[in-house]
Simulated assay, not measured.
Amino acid sequence: MSSSDAPLDLSLDGGALTARLVDFPSVSGDEQALADAVESALRALPHLAVDRYGNNVVARTNLGRPERVLLAGHLDTVPIADNVPSYVDGDLLYGCGTSDMKSGVAVQLRLAATLTEPNHDLTFVFYDCEEIEASRNGLGHLAKHRPDWLAADFAILMEPSGAMVEGGCQGTMRAQIALTGTRAHAARSWLGDNAIHHAAELLGRLASYEPRRVEIDGLEYREGLNAVKIEGGVAGNVIPDECVVTVNFRFAPDRSEAEAEDHLREVFAGYRVLVTDSAPGALPGLAQPAAQAFLAATGGRARAKFGWTDVARFSALGVPAVNYGPGDPNLAHKREEHCSLSAIAEVEDRLRAWLTGS
């Protein structure tokens, strides 16, 4: 029986279950077999109600608790880079997806299987296509077509965070600024107007820009505005009549996308600004009682999430969310990707203690 045919054994410890998941290939767009296995394993648990939409599996308790906590993780990985099957070296488990984020998914499955009397009602979400274009993201599909399945008072995205709470996430926005001139032969450059040279003033604004530092729920978010690409030039003997500078704005979650765009247009007043891509941030929600209890149960330390994650989708639904998982985000997508077995056990133990009041 191949690894993709064998059923998932949720009685395995977290490390062994992570290895089992890693050996079950599920590159983005090819998660059906793993989604089938997850659904089958969860449907065997009488204390859970299980639903499925596409390759997204949702399991819930219905115990009548006053609050509901949601734990979410994606089933897909980036393409395998000769790093499957998994192997163990000391305390480290190596393999594609160990850090991002099959270790987190293993913790979810372990908790789903064993927490029959939690102190909150629980929702477990396993979704597809997180590592590719946003239009295919399974959590986004659920938010659009089955938002009631994601209703909760607090959400934990099991993204790799080094077993430390990372609150919310920053928003991101890309924009293009087009500079124009007049084309001419380089031998008679005085007849032209060099569009690339016009970028100097724009780049000067960026070089002198002072990004905000914003404290929200005790976490400091550091904004950033940077040029990430410059395109221009026609040929080696032509004065260019166009130059396009692409900028990336990482903004704190106290700004909406509209406010972030307004800020860009203020910074680049006098220029044409075309926003080409945007995603909102997510407030950490650490002032919520459930979040405070969770933070205390996981060591009392938290830091801001500087990248963008799917916690923003929960924020858009009005659900405060944090990132918390055993993997190291700096190892995600690497050929040598690995995760600490002790971190997997630590995250599971801390979540179990919090969700049972022990």
Rank of each mutant, 00 (worst) to 15 (best):
M1W: 11
S3K: 08
D5V: 13
A6K: 14
G15Y: 01
L21E: 01
G29K: 03
E31Y: 08
A37N: 02
A44I: 12
Y53V: 07
T61C: 03
L63C: 02
E67P: 00
L70Q: 04
D91H: 02
D91N: 14
Y94S: 02
Y94L: 07
G95A: 01
K102Q: 10
Q108L: 14
L109P: 02
T116N: 05
P118M: 10
L122P: 05
Y127K: 04
G140N: 10
L150G: 05
D153C: 04
A155T: 06
M158P: 00
P160M: 01
V165C: 06
E166N: 13
E166C: 13
Q170A: 12
T172A: 14
T172K: 13
M173D: 04
A187W: 09
W190C: 03
H197R: 13
L202M: 11
S208V: 12
D217A: 09
G218R: 10
Y221S: 03
G224L: 14
L225G: 10
V228E: 02
I239R: 04
D241S: 13
S256H: 12
F268P: 05
T276S: 13
D277P: 00
A279R: 15
L286S: 09
Q292I: 01
V311G: 08
A316I: 03
G318W: 07
G318K: 01
A332K: 04
C339P: 01
L341I: 12
A343F: 09
I344M: 03
I344T: 10
A353Y: 05
